[in-house]
Amino acid sequence: MPTTIMNGREIPVDAEGFLTDPSAWDEDLATVLAANIGIELTDEHWKVLRFLREDYATQGETATTRRVQSVGGVPTKTQFQLFPKKPAKKMAYIAGLPKPRGCV
């Protein structure tokens, strides 16, 4: 399994660079992951990221943009503003989770 060095640690990732072990993630690392893709985290970003982490812990799956709206309470439009163009994948990447597998 490939790994990459971030924040002075060796982090297991897949071929694209998504974390493969959610437990390797912490909030400091999220800041590094966000900076990697040009995003500076604000409180609004953190609301999404914390929802994704909590939802993954109970559901075992990464929430889709639909779920982040309907369960997490963050409107679709806001998600696109916070994580431009590809919100589902960017949110998952920064939250240290796999890409969502749901279609909607």
Binding site: P2, T4, I5, M6, V13, E16, G17, F18, N36, I37, G38, P84, K85, K86, K89, K90, Y93
Partner: peptide, 13 residues
């Protein structure tokens, strides 16, 4: 040390 592996979102253009 090599550069970190970062996903390419191909959305910067």
């Amino acid at each position: 040390m090599s550069e970190p592996l970062i996903p390419q979102f191909d959305d910067d253009t």
